Computed example of a mutant assay.
Amino acid sequence: MKDWYLLYCKRSEQERAVINLDRQGVDCYYPQVTVQKITRGKRAESIEPLFPNYVFVHFDPEVVSYTSVRSTRGVADFIRCGTFPQKVREELIYNLMMNEDSVEHQRLLSMLPQPGEKLKLEQGKFQGLEAIYQEADGEKRSFMLINLLGKPVKVSVENTDLLKK
């Protein structure tokens, strides 16, 4: 009987792992989101994995062995519970599939400040400092420029620590 499992892949080798697993008849899923980034001064959309270095796989261990999946190029290992690969609930996978690139997710991304916008940090270790928003750093963090001892320093802070001026 087929079950879902979670694999940890080698750095930046998710796509290689998916291609090689697909050749073995293993169904793969790694959720991706569209992210807006500024490269060379221009805004561009790119597609990035929601969970970098992780791939969900769906297979029957009696047909394809754990060893052959684990030994696939690009794969580091299974996420385990003790010595056995941890099974992932089907509902979780289907919910991820249904919500991938949802309107709500895009709305949350659009709420981030614009690059160059001046902000005041409301919480955290840099509380009270004025900062200039640079770019998003993942789902819940942002890069900011703050002025420490007369020199601009780029730091990563939680998005919840931001307060627009």
Rank of each mutant, 00 (worst) to 15 (best):
M1K: 09
M1R: 08
M1H: 08
D3A: 12
L7S: 00
K10G: 00
K10D: 01
R11I: 10
R11P: 09
S12C: 05
E13T: 08
Q14M: 10
E15Y: 09
E15D: 12
A17Y: 01
I19Q: 12
N20V: 04
L21I: 03
L21K: 03
D22N: 15
R23Y: 07
R23L: 14
Q24T: 02
Q24M: 15
Q24G: 03
G25E: 04
V26H: 02
C28K: 03
C28Q: 06
C28N: 07
C28F: 04
C28M: 05
Y30A: 05
Q32T: 14
V33R: 13
V33K: 10
T34Y: 12
T34A: 12
T34N: 12
V35L: 13
I38W: 10
I38A: 09
I38M: 14
R40T: 12
G41C: 07
G41H: 07
K42M: 12
R43M: 14
R43L: 13
A44Y: 08
E45S: 13
S46V: 14
P49A: 07
F51I: 07
F51T: 01
N53T: 12
V55A: 02
F56V: 04
H58Q: 04
F59S: 00
F59H: 02
P61N: 02
P61S: 03
E62W: 09
V63G: 04
V64E: 02
V64I: 15
S65F: 06
Y66K: 07
T67A: 13
T67S: 11
S68K: 11
V69Q: 00
S71I: 01
S71V: 02
G74Q: 04
V75S: 01
V75E: 00
F78M: 01
I79R: 05
R80L: 07
C81L: 15
G82P: 04
G82E: 06
T83V: 10
P85N: 04
P85V: 03
P85H: 03
Q86P: 02
Q86K: 13
K87H: 09
V88P: 00
R89F: 11
E90F: 07
L92F: 15
I93P: 03
L96S: 03
L96V: 05
M97H: 07
M98S: 12
N99F: 13
E100C: 09
V103Y: 15
V103W: 11
E104M: 13
Q106R: 15
R107D: 14
R107Y: 11
S110Y: 05
L112F: 09
P113R: 03
Q114M: 09
P115T: 03
K118C: 05
K118F: 08
L119Y: 00
K120V: 13
L121N: 02
E122G: 07
Q123H: 10
Q123W: 06
G124K: 04
G128V: 05
I132Q: 13
Y133T: 06
Y133E: 04
E135Q: 13
E135H: 10
E135M: 10
A136K: 07
D137H: 14
D137M: 07
D137T: 06
K140D: 14
M144R: 01
L149N: 15
V155E: 08
S156V: 10
V157S: 00
N159D: 13
N159R: 07
N159C: 09
T160D: 14
L163T: 06
L163H: 11
K164L: 11
K165L: 13
K165A: 10
